[in-house]
Every structure is written in structure tokens, then in C-alpha cells.
Amino acid sequence: MIGAFVPARQGSRHRAELKGERVSTLASKIVPFGSGSRIVDTACRSLSIAAGGLQALEARFSEREFAATFLRMVGMLMKVRGRVIVTGIGKSGIVARKMTATLTSTGTPAIFLHPADAGHGDLGMVTPDDVVLMLSHSGESTELGPIIQYCKRFAIPLLGMTAQPQSTVAQAADICILMPDVQEACPNALAPTTSTTVQMAFGDALAVSLMEMRGFSADDFHKFHPNGRLGAQLIKVRELMARDEQVPMVREDASLLDATIEMTRARLGGTAVVDRNGRLIGAFTDGDLRRTVTGKQNLTEPVGRFMTQTPQAVGPDELASEALHMMHERNIMLLFVCENGRLTGALHMHDLLHAGVA
């Protein structure tokens, strides 16, 4: 008899039990009982090795030749009339993409060139006004060859980043940053780990240095980051404030009734009180109105008697995030905007929150 008959339900249960045993056996091989601490130790060791790589990079800046080379690189990037063409292959290519994004968003026009596409027409994007920044840990990636030849043929400045001083990239570059030859966190010393961390950190250091050299401000940053949370934190008051007819205002001799009508029209929960020259001298809010009505005041009386004097105000070029902080601190919902003492706008907390300001 070749095999015994097994009912369908029992067969399914039997197969599940066998599968469970195989999974259990596999799990025990991957994570032996009691080895959790060893795995945590491995993760910590990886971080320690990466930190050592960053310390090695920082130490290089104290070397006169390395620092001088870095300054020459910054100087060339400051003077470039075109763009920075950043390139690399493999993991260095991924770092090059990130470096491109950081440079572009911080005031240095940059574009990533994939070496595999360079020899198929994309070299046409490189102009004599550009400079090429080439990343390669080994300095011997064959895919970079056409780009090196193109730079030499058309006298395009070539900046290199490699850990091997005798490599093709190092020898071909007009300026070459010699990265520290760090220990990889990979136990086989094969997978790029620490070396790419160091490359990434150097790219950030280069971008920040260029930012400071250019005097790249928060205003400039906002121009390149109009959307998202970063953009929201850099919005100016003038971009969100109500202006012109939207701003509720009355003269100090206006009646309480007139002030109430103006508040209702603008729907901001208050109105500014100004003098004959348009200078802000007070504020009259919903709270002031409730207190006034409770006191059974005559609605024909002048609002100037009941307004809040020296109200909180901000300038139009203040950060909206600072205005929101002021509102929270003083527990108010409405701020008036003044320029040289004159009322120019009004800002409600709802407008700030709607814009994502925090």
C-alpha cells in the first residue's frame, strides 16, 4: 500500500503542524533562544562604528591639506555659473541623489546625473558653465569612465570624493576630497555602511558651508519650501493677515453700537480702534462687548471708554509662528498688524491653524 488514507481535515491539520514545526525550526536558527541581547549588541556596535567614521571625518578637517582642499572646493562651487552635476553609482549614487536635493534646496543649483544614462545622451545636460561632483568610495567604478572623459574633453571642472588616493577618480579630479578609509559596520566588510554615512555627513557639511557663504536666510529657505510643515513655519504674517476692507476698525469716538456692527461685519471676534491718523490705539473684542452689556451701558456711548488700550500687535514681516506663540502666551485669538504704528491688517488664530502653522 503506497500511502494511508488521511481525511481532508486531518490532512490539513497535519500539513499545518509540519509547517509550524519548520517555521519554529527556522526561527530558532535565526534567533536562537536567549540571543536577543546579542542582536542588540550588534546594532549598538554598528552605530559605534558609524560614529567612529564620523569622528574620523571630523578629524580630517584639522589636517591642513584636507582643510585647504575643502576650501578650494567650496570656492569653486561658489563661483560656478551653471549647476553642480552630482554623480555616483550604487550606494554612492543614492548618497549623490540626497546631496543633490540638499544643495538645491539650500541655494546651490544642482542636478543628479546617473552614470548609466550618461553614455546614452544625458551627458548633453552638462555644459561648460557647470561643475561635476563625483562620488565613489573605491574611485574605480567603470560606469564613471564616460563622465570623466567628457569632463576632460570639454574642460569641465571635476570634483572628486573618494577614499583611495591612487584611484582613477582621485587622479582625474581637479580637486579631490580624500575621505577617511573607514571600517564598514557590515561584519563581512562588504556592504557600504559606514562609508556611505560619512559621505552623507560630508555632503551636509558642504551644503551648510555653502549656505553660510551665500548668506542663505530663512526667507530664502521658504522660497524653496513653500509647501509642507517646513514652509508653514516660515510663513510671514503679511501672507495670512486680513487687509483693506477685511480689517475691522472704528474711530475711538464711534459708538458701542457702531463697534458691534463692525465686529459682526468682519467676523474676526473684535475690531481695532484707531485715531484720526490710522494709528492703532485700542481693541474692542467680543469679551469687551459682553462685559459692557453686562454693565448695562448705553450703546450710544463712545467705544474709546471701553476698549482695551495698548493692544497686542505684530509687524507684517514677523513669522506667523511667532504670532501664534504670542497668541498662546496671552490667551488671545486676534492680533492686529501694524507698520510704523499704522494699522495694516488683522490676524486670527484660525487662519494660522488653517495654514498649518504650529
Score class of each variant (00 low, 15 high):
residue 112 F to I: 02
residue 112 F to L: 02
residue 112 F to E: 01
residue 112 F to Y: 09
residue 113 L to V: 08
residue 113 L to I: 08
residue 114 H to T: 00
residue 114 H to C: 02
residue 114 H to G: 12
residue 114 H to F: 09
residue 115 P to M: 01
residue 115 P to S: 03
residue 115 P to E: 08
residue 116 A to D: 11
residue 116 A to T: 02
residue 116 A to W: 02
residue 116 A to P: 04
residue 116 A to M: 01
residue 117 D to E: 11
residue 118 A to S: 07
residue 118 A to W: 08
residue 118 A to F: 04
residue 119 G to E: 01
residue 119 G to F: 01
residue 119 G to V: 00
residue 121 G to H: 06
residue 121 G to C: 12
residue 121 G to E: 01
residue 121 G to A: 05
residue 122 D to L: 01
residue 122 D to Q: 07
residue 122 D to N: 06
residue 123 L to G: 14
residue 123 L to E: 00
residue 123 L to N: 05
residue 123 L to M: 09
residue 124 G to M: 03
residue 125 M to C: 07
residue 125 M to S: 06
residue 125 M to G: 03
residue 126 V to L: 13
residue 126 V to F: 13
residue 127 T to Y: 14
residue 128 P to F: 15
residue 128 P to S: 06
residue 128 P to H: 12
residue 128 P to R: 11
residue 128 P to I: 12
residue 129 D to L: 11
residue 129 D to G: 12
residue 129 D to K: 07
residue 129 D to S: 12
residue 129 D to P: 07
residue 130 D to T: 09
residue 130 D to Q: 10
residue 131 V to Y: 13
residue 131 V to W: 04
residue 133 L to V: 01
residue 133 L to R: 10
residue 133 L to A: 08
residue 134 M to F: 15
residue 134 M to D: 08
residue 134 M to T: 05
residue 134 M to A: 15
residue 135 L to T: 04
residue 135 L to K: 00
residue 135 L to R: 01
residue 136 S to E: 04
residue 137 H to T: 05
residue 137 H to P: 02
residue 137 H to C: 03
residue 139 G to N: 07
residue 139 G to P: 07
residue 139 G to L: 13
residue 140 E to S: 13
residue 140 E to Q: 13
residue 141 S to Y: 05
residue 141 S to G: 11
residue 141 S to D: 04
residue 141 S to I: 02
residue 141 S to T: 08
residue 141 S to H: 03
residue 142 T to P: 08
residue 142 T to K: 15
residue 143 E to N: 05
residue 143 E to S: 08
residue 143 E to I: 02
residue 143 E to R: 03
residue 144 L to R: 04
residue 144 L to C: 05
residue 144 L to V: 03
residue 144 L to S: 09
residue 144 L to I: 03
residue 145 G to H: 12
residue 145 G to K: 14
residue 145 G to P: 00
residue 146 P to V: 06
residue 147 I to A: 13
residue 148 I to W: 15
residue 149 Q to T: 09
residue 149 Q to A: 15
residue 149 Q to R: 14
residue 149 Q to W: 12
residue 150 Y to G: 14
residue 150 Y to W: 14
residue 151 C to W: 12
residue 152 K to Q: 14
residue 152 K to G: 13
residue 152 K to E: 13
residue 153 R to D: 15
residue 153 R to E: 15
residue 154 F to C: 10
residue 154 F to L: 09
residue 154 F to R: 07
